[in-house]
Structures are given as structure tokens and as C-alpha cells.
């Protein structure tokens, strides 16, 4: 029966539209995708400073690395990767309290789900463990699971 078919088609079409409309709105509500690790890049002027800092860290010269990173942070203060690397520097220097604080600073500039945020948590856990704060270290490791 063409008429009933047509009427049924319209009904299904309306139902589909009703279902789709809020769906479109919901799609718009989705939060921005968290950045991938490689998505957190640094500016061209900061890149050589970060590279030099990493090389200094590899040579286990944290004070030198710190100098480069502070210059970089002056140029690009809102870059979480720079704060994270500064936290690594403090870890190498044995300043675990600052390691934790700088990791928190880095995380404050990141979505919680960002891979770098997980690296920060991992670094903080290691620093807490070095400070003898095993409970806090485990709590952070729980978050990482």
C-alpha cells in the first residue's frame, strides 16, 4: 500500500529527525580532544633552548638545564612542556618538593587527560617516594592506572 508506506516513511523520517536534532547539539557539547604528546610543541624561538636543556639533562647538568629552561619560560610562560622539563631538572637536582610543585604547575596548564599530565603525575609519584611519602606516591599511581 503506497499510501500507508508513504505515511509510514514520513513518520519514520520525523522520528529520525527528532532523534538527530538533539544529537547534533550533543555533538557540539563534546569537549575539545586532549592534545597528544607531540601536540604540545614549543615555539621556534624556544625550541633550541628546550633542546639544549634536554641535552644538559642527559649530561646530568641540571643547573645548566635550569638556566636554559628559565629563559624558555620567560619567552613562553604558558607552555606546560617547559614547566614539566623544569620539574625533571629539579628531580635531577634532588629538589623533590619543587619537582612536585612544578609538575602541578605544568598540570594546571593541561587537560587532565593529556598524556603529559600523566607524565607529570608519574614524576610527582616518584618525587613523593623520594620524600618518603609512600601513601601519596601510591595514590598518584592509582590515578595513573
Amino acid at each position: 500500500m503506497p499510501n500507508s508506506f508513504t505515511g509510514g516513511g514520513l513518520l519514520w523520517g520525523c522520528l529520525l529527525l527528532i532523534l538527530l536534532l538533539p544529537g547534533c547539539a550533543l555533538l557540539e557539547l563534546k569537549p575539545a580532544r586532549p592534545p597528544e604528546p607531540e601536540a604540545i610543541s614549543v615555539s621556534p624561538q624556544t625550541a633550541p633552548l628546550l633542546a639544549s636543556a634536554r641535552q644538559a639533562l642527559d649530561r646530568r647538568e641540571p643547573a645548566t638545564a635550569e638556566g636554559y629552561l628559565e629563559r624558555a619560560i620567560r619567552l613562553e610562560p604558558r607552555n606546560p612542556l617547559l614547566w614539566h622539563t623544569l620539574a625533571q631538572t629539579k628531580y635531577q637536582q634532588g629538589d623533590y618538593a619543587q619537582t612536585i610543585q612544578l609538575s602541578l604547575r605544568s598540570n594546571a596548564l593541561l587537560p587532565q587527560s593529556a598524556p603529559l599530565a600523566r607524565e607529570n603525575l608519574s614524576l610527582m609519584a616518584a618525587a613523593h617516594r623520594r620524600l618518603g611519602q609512600e601513601d601519596k606516591a601510591r595514590q598518584l599511581e592509582e590515578q595513573l592506572r
Binding site: 536534532l21 538533539p22 547539539a25 557540539e28 557539547l29
Partner: peptide
């Protein structure tokens, strides 16, 4: 209620 920046869009407003 709607989140910031989306406002539901024009489709959302119709709904």
C-alpha cells in the same frame, strides 16, 4: 543547560 561556547547551536535552540 548548555556548555559554554556551544550554546546548543541553532539546532539546539530549536530543541
Amino acid at each position: 543547560a548548555r556548555e559554554k561556547g556551544d550554546g546548543g547551536g541553532w539546532l539546539g535552540r530549536i530543541v
